[in-house]
Amino acid sequence: MHPDLLRYSCQVALPGFGETAQQLLKQAKVLVVGAGGLGCPAAQYLASTGVGTIGIADFDIVSISNLHRQILYNPADAGQLKAEVACERLQEQNPDITLLPVIDKITSANVLQIIDAYDVIVDGTDNFETRYLLNDAAVLTGKPVVYGAIYQFEGQVAVWNVLTEDGSYSPNYRDLYPQVDATQVPNCSVGGVIPTLAGIIGCMQANEVIKLITNTGEILIGKVLLFDAQTMQSRMIKLGASTKTKITALQQTTEILTINAKATKEGLATHTLELVDVRTDQERDEFDIGGMHFELDEVEDNLDEFKPGKTYVFYCSSGKRSGEAVKLLQQKLPGVKAYSLEGGLGSW
């Protein structure tokens, strides 16, 4: 047997697989967006299975609270760029494939260029804005997206935008959810997530990528799989054969004004800034740095608390929820100056 194939002999032996499928994997170019709870296991299995070119896109750095579910990182990696650490680890795991870190934050300005070189996009992101951006960019360029999302004990998996035999494209994320108010849906740092769910859903995404590339099995096209790690029950929801959504342009990425800890402290000392905590009551009870307090999903109901002419610095644990709050204020109260504390309380 060719030494290259020895590594893959136990999958080449599968019925309907063979050396042809292995060759297809070798030629494939897959972009994993988000090297977090879903991206880590997905990328691990794409690398082990021999996908020839894997891009890993993440602008974030490793933090200690990621480690419970982001299994490619060690505490010693804290502070390093996730995309770079992930590529380094995966290159050791499989020296014969090409790994490309992408460390730019994906925006409406660069998304088309970033995905251009890839055949398949894996959506392992942790926010709605990037999910919609990837979805819309994939629809505009005719590429499939392997979607995964998790919260607490429940996950979703699906494959979007696959060209079907009748020439139409299969449903995409906007067929499921035309739009979402991101301030109303808690993310993992609020509601928590069980690490093994991330592993299961991430592996399922890699599984669908392999099926897509090798054209084997029944791919999750026109349906979405819901999985519950508490009961181990899963449920398949049919969505229909073709998309009913028209996507003609990318939604522009809103730039969020941020401010670092040092500048914020100076502003507080000179009474030119006011703090707004958007974490949960529970988080507030444990520790706070002062200022007003509304949980993120209550900001919209309290817009009259924000006065034109004043400058507010929103904060949370990581800068993610405060970013959503700033986006909301920029949109609803353009006369009020609002910043998000960069890096959240982690940087305080």
């Binding site: 499921l176 959810y177 035309p178 739009q179 979402v180 849906v185 929801i237 049919k238 999903d297 919209e300």
Partner: peptide, 17 residues
């Protein structure tokens, strides 16, 4: 009212959108 605030959510009947 919180349901409306999500902006969208899926309703499935007998496992179909």
């Amino acid at each position: 009212p919180k349901l409306k605030q999500l902006a969208s959510y899926m309703v499935a009947v007998n496992n179909e959108y």
